[in-house]
Design a protein around this nucleic acid. Structure first.
Lengths: 202, 202
DNA sequence: AGCAGCGTAGCACGACTGTGCTAGTATGTG
DNA sequence: CACATACTAGCACAGTCGTGCTACGCTGCT
């Protein structure tokens, strides 16, 4: 065998170059050439790892989702279930420049799904994963599971999270974010409180 | 003067061709040639109206927003303020194929803003307009105006609307949408009810 | 030492891009 | 009728695109 390299690391390096190009010049500027140049490799090398542009773009999307999932799985223990839920949700909102970039790349890849069909599945996976997280959080907060009230609450929480993400993305990077956190905290509290007082539905 | 045509109609025709191309092949397929072909005109004619691609894309975005605004302004009188608010919100959600397409084009143009800077302003305008609508609805529902509680409620409603739009977009065209409408209705009811019982905050 | 083969480097090709430019055509106004 | 001109039509050019392809060098196993 001749010299071999860490393929996964190389793929990650190229995926990160894709993200950078998206942030700098938008998704339409993502070509095998621009990405290769950004990553400091020649086109031939990039194409040795990703034979086509589609594979490059799709892997970039998958790795991005994988990274987010990883971050979500890192344990954030809290004695109070409300603070636990709050911390988890803060993890998926574009609150700092890094997560904002993440969100922006996500939107760009969503818009590219007409050109790279595989992106649709990636996007759907991400969506369902967030949905499942919301269900879990509601279950923890209410102490119930599987009831219609839980799924309803989870739906609502999910919508709120996605909506807030969209809003945060629309305001300047250094803008005030406390209002969004307030909304999340109040929602989390409401879910917990309603469960304790027995009235959940509506 | 030589023969003249309805310039606005021609511009609208071209903008609609842009939307169609976005829906069919994604934003990256939007070129002066593809759009001209879709509109049934030659490139020269298109460029007589829109000298550059940027102007074409930007106008398409502006016209789209204009159309939405127009639809929003058409009076939908209701004796009950809750039903009025509900109807208004239904107007901005991607519930049928047409409004879904609208939403998709919106997202695509959002992703293209790195290439066409003017799109950022268009998107921001749309966002602020929806925010203003939410404030107005909350004012109508609560009978108050200008209080912190109103802006807080409006923020929350706005986030919920954007989040639900995102969710509806992720499910199949013929999917069940009643759950989203239920959430909206319950939120509208809650806003109205809390205002009557005096407790608004949180 | 030799060699198989991974990874690097880059040329070539046809297609497509945005935009500058010119020529022709039809039509409303004088 | 004449003419100015809005509009149509299309060529040209330089650039970028994705991808097929070959050639070379280094490396690690036999």
């Amino acid at each position: 065998m001749p010299r071999t390299m860490d393929r996964d690391a190389r793929k990650a390096q190229l995926a990160e170059a894709v993200w950078q190009v998206i942030l700098d010049q938008g998704i339409s500027a993502v070509s095998v050439r621009t990405v290769a140049e950004h990553a400091g490799v020649v086109v031939g090398s990039l194409r040795h790892v990703f034979p086509t542009r589609s594979e490059l773009v799709q892997f970039s999307a998958e790795l991005m989702m994988e990274r987010v999932t990883e971050r979500l799985l890192t344990a954030t223990p809290h004695d109070d279930s409300r603070e636990y839920a709050f911390a988890k949700i803060k993890n998926v909102l574009p609150l700092d420049p890094d997560t904002r970039a993440e969100y922006e790349v996500n939107l760009a890849l969503l818009a590219e799904r007409a050109a790279v069909p595989g992106l649709l599945q990636v996007r759907l996976d991400a969506h369902h994963q967030l949905a499942k997280l919301c269900v879990r959080l509601v279950e923890i907060l209410t102490g119930q599971a599987g009831t219609p009230a839980v799924t309803s609450r989870a739906h609502r929480l999910h919508a709120l999270v996605d909506g807030l993400a969209f809003h945060l993305f629309h305001q300047p990077v250094d803008g005030d974010t406390t209002w969004a956190l307030d909304i999340i905290w109040s929602e989390v509290s409401t879910i917990a409180a309603d469960a304790n007082s027995g009235e959940i539905s509506h």
